[in-house]
Design a protein around this nucleic acid. Sequence first.
DNA 1: ATGAAAGCGCTAACAG
DNA 2: CTGTTAGCGCTTTCAT
Lengths: 351, 351
Amino acid sequence: MAAPHDSSAAVRRSPTILDVASQAGVSKSTVSNVVRGLPGVSEATRRRVHLAIDQLGYRPNVLARQLVQRRTSILGVVVGDLANPFFAEMAKSVERHAASRGYTAMFCNTEGDSQSELAGVETLLQHRVAGIIFLAFSGDSRLMQETLEHQVPVVFVSCSAEWGDVVSVDDTSGAALGTNHLIECGHRRIAYVSIPELEDQSDVARYEGYAEALRQAGLGPAVRISWSPPSDHASVDGVDRHLLEMFKGPHRATAVFASNDVAAISLQEFADRVSIRVPQDISIVGFDDVPMAGLARIALTTVAQPRDELARLGISTIADRIERKLKGPPRTTLVDVNLVTRNSTAKLAPG
Amino acid sequence: MAAPHDSSAAVRRSPTILDVASQAGVSKSTVSNVVRGLPGVSEATRRRVHLAIDQLGYRPNVLARQLVQRRTSILGVVVGDLANPFFAEMAKSVERHAASRGYTAMFCNTEGDSQSELAGVETLLQHRVAGIIFLAFSGDSRLMQETLEHQVPVVFVSCSAEWGDVVSVDDTSGAALGTNHLIECGHRRIAYVSIPELEDQSDVARYEGYAEALRQAGLGPAVRISWSPPSDHASVDGVDRHLLEMFKGPHRATAVFASNDVAAISLQEFADRVSIRVPQDISIVGFDDVPMAGLARIALTTVAQPRDELARLGISTIADRIERKLKGPPRTTLVDVNLVTRNSTAKLAPG
DNA sequence: ATGAAAGCGCTAACAG
DNA sequence: CTGTTAGCGCTTTCAT
């Protein structure tokens, strides 16, 4: 009487279209037509079929459908690092917009590692995703080939590559915008700080914008600091130095343009730890405008990316590509950033 | 010569097992055996098949495989709100552990809305996911039935329901731990603050732990504040009041146990805005220990959940369930929380 | 050790 | 309007 293990209903397979057909006394194509909402089914049979569906708790098997149609409605989403609030927000937006266009998102967190990026894409491809959205791209060109071979539409959102559609902000001019704010505040020695979590593409472009702004203003030299928080050391133009050296002494930097908000906030954290005051001793501007940056205690001046807009355009681009409403060579869509001024920046104190 | 639209390689379908078979001069079953790494294939043919696979760039169609096997290796993950760093971190851990056990995660952001939770689960079910992991559960019992009808293994991680496996912390004792810390600091009037983003289950359990701790210490009354930041008003034990009233005057609360870190940080933000000092005027303890809580500028004392441990156990539970290594009635696995003391709490100032 | 055949659950012509 | 017939690409007996 008492079975050793509960296995009561475990065997009951989910009903198929055939079960519904016989239950409703029609053929399976008719059921299929009803399910897909095609016209040309009499109201009477339609009702019978729906009744049967409800009675049986029938749920179409998307796998089977997609196998015969030779395309899925799954969108692969390659995310750099979900722990970065910028990506978390983007992922959320992307998922929502995808759903609103009838697609399901399959995420793949790559931790910025091009190894697992490849593995992730491989998995997505095996699942025959309809397209792939990169929210971060390590820039490995082997990957590019893998993907191209399969003719899956690809869109790079907030990152880029030449071989796919791109929807992003202009990193270079965005960085220039942030850097110019610092210059307008009177700063003359401004450093650029980046952390390894940011993919190279954006890093390079933002550095470029920073350096260019400096050049335009007749300032220099550009200083690139590559830092792995929470270390006290960093690579400054290639040589290892204590971070503190950068912000002490007569030649100290009075301002920093950080490659993204995570870097900026880490730097702020470092500054707090070693009693460098922000913004009195150094001004800091970030990039992204993550929600956290808006907290009064963080109050980070930053270059804001319109996340939802990026996500919306990204989905719309790839959906059009998949549905062949968009053809031809890769398109690039740039959206505007804007500067959000908060308390991490201030006019340079005279003297 | 020049086609109106680029369609060069767009027609080349991806190679199937049959293509590989003929290329290698064997039958498709042999290819299948090779692909799946089954024994009983001569080394010579194995090599020929692998060669053909590489030449053709063959990639098995997971859909077809899963259709015939009648089970997928996709895990559905229902996330409350990816914008909450706690969930973002959990999602990341879950994805990683899932991958390490051979499963792919399909996320579903529900924004805490039981409507879209239902829609999401419906989609997951149509995709015949092997199991569903709830990282947040609104508690809608209609959903429960939908899911149960299909006999998909379900595990609730960091949330709970009676009808599935549960892996979580003990919210009640966790809340008591946090509240007791406040009591030990000398606080006598301690309020409980929650925000709508937190699902009811945890909210109720944490309130219970808070109230119980108060009772045990002979303190009271318990005060429940339901707040939607950034409003200045909140419902206090059901009646609408200005938040400020709670923290001014002789009967003011000197400490708050917040239902989670997001609530705690929002409260801190409010306090900053109205010049209530933390911790001098009020002490605040949160729940979760999101990364942000550790920033010096936030320095939130909080009840830490072992996120990676939760994710690991959750995946392991559902994988065992799917692979039938685990049978019988739902199991509950509780893991320990621990208190992380930072600067948002302090001994009650005498007087 | 390898191959042939029968589906998995569904859609997509095509008949009736 | 409804039913019949082929597959989609793969796994899985069962023969050989």
